[in-house]
């Protein structure tokens, strides 16, 4: 019950943040020089037609009024029409969401599964070769640009070795996607009992997932190592050890449980970074997700699409933070809620 009240209160606090970010997203697309309608209409459209189209898109009204109309439409689930795909932006985003979700989910999952044990082991065995490997990964992952890592991996595993598919998107061109259930090809293929499509969908995922995972691993491993070292040096761990509790239990039960909480908050930030990195990764792998969509929208000055994407990405980011805060509150008795 108290938890529910805590969640509701947090949601209430988020209202101004979401409204503020909608306002900024709106403003960013209004200060752009040049009129998008003239571009959409083409050079041969008559002046009346341009004015007519402007009125249809409400671009002839004062900006504060445009904002109110936009928020009102948003509340009714209408994000406007994309100028480039001539579809509702909401529909566009919904169609592309599973592709990005599949990629980010696999990448963050892989990063967590690899980085947390790596961080723990390098903290327990400080100065060992595992510690050094972990540090090299942590440093390399935050120093090299994500799009460059993607290109290097692609040139090795596709260009040189030919083991994995190149920049082809989610499946080879000749294959059709599995019947739509979740929109995630690997899962849909499994549900449809289609091992061939599953294998190809998985092969297409490997390099983009690996790139994103490598970059996401670095901060997680680093943070886990730092908080584990703090926990291992603490009084309660010394007490537990002196009571004769086995080392394994001390590390996993006493130190790890305390060390993991700050890492959770960091993971929320890493997911936010991954949403941004997505744009670059999808561009390189021709991955038909939200990132590629937003890139194309920006390149063709497609206001409603850019706006819709920024708002969606921001809301997702805020939602992830909320979830992490709730998990933290559940795990950590020191957090008051």
């Amino acid at each position: 019950m108290r938890m529910l009240r805590y969640i509701l209160r947090r949601l209430l606090f988020l209202v101004p943040v979401v409204l503020g970010s909608i306002f900024i997203a709106f403003l960013l697309t209004r200060v752009v020089p040049g009129n998008p309608i003239e571009r959409v209409a083409g050079p041969y459209a008559s002046e009346e037609r341009v004015l007519e189209m402007k009125a249809e898109a409400n671009l002839d009204k004062p900006i504060p009024q445009q904002f109110l109309i936009y928020v009102n439409d948003l509340l009714h689930g209408d994000m406007g029409m994309s100028y480039t795909t001539a579809q509702p932006v909401g529909k566009d985003l919904k169609e592309r969401f599973p592709a990005s979700f599949e990629l980010v989910m696999f990448a963050i999952g892989l990063a967590i599964v690899l980085a947390i044990p790596l961080g723990v082991v390098s903290a327990v065995k400080r100065g060992s070769w595992i510690d050094h490997v972990a540090r090299v990964i942590a440093v390399a992952g935050v120093s090299a640009p994500i799009f460059w890592i993607a290109m290097v991996l692609l040139s090795i595993f596709y260009g040189k070795l030919g083991w994995l598919p190149g920049s082809q998107g989610r499946l080879p061109i000749i294959m059709s996607p599995p019947p739509h259930v979740t929109g995630m090809y690997t899962i849909d293929a499994l549900l449809a009992g289609d091992p061939v499509t599953f294998k190809e969908a998985l092969r297409a995922l490997i390099l983009p997932v690996l790139t994103l995972a490598l970059v996401s691993m670095a901060p997680i491993a680093r943070m886990t190592r730092a908080t584990m070292i703090d926990a291992l040096d603490s009084d309660y761990v010394r007490t537990a050890t002196s009571l004769g509790i086995p080392r394994r239990t001390v590390v996993m039960k006493h130190a790890f449980k305390n060390a993991i909480i700050p890492v959770l908050t960091l993971i929320a930030g890493v997911i936010g970074y991954a949403i941004g990195g997505e744009v670059l990764i999808e561009l390189i792998f021709s991955w038909p997700g939200l990132g590629l969509y937003s890139y194309n929208a920006i390149m063709s000055a497609d206001f409603p699409a850019v706006q819709g994407f920024i708002i969606l990405a921001t809301c997702l980011y805020i939602l992830i933070y909320l979830i992490v805060d709730v998990i933290t509150a559940l795990l950590d008795p020191r957090v008051e809620y």
Binding site: G20, V31, Y273, G276, T314, Y317
Partner: peptide, 22 residues
């Protein structure tokens, strides 16, 4: 609270938005 809103954006997306605007 204004800083909260600015930090609510995923970093690179926000940079893209600003670069798009100017």
């Amino acid at each position: 609270r204004t800083m909260d809103i600015l930090q609510a954006f995923p970093r690179f997306i926000f940079a893209m938005g600003i670069a798009f605007a100017i």
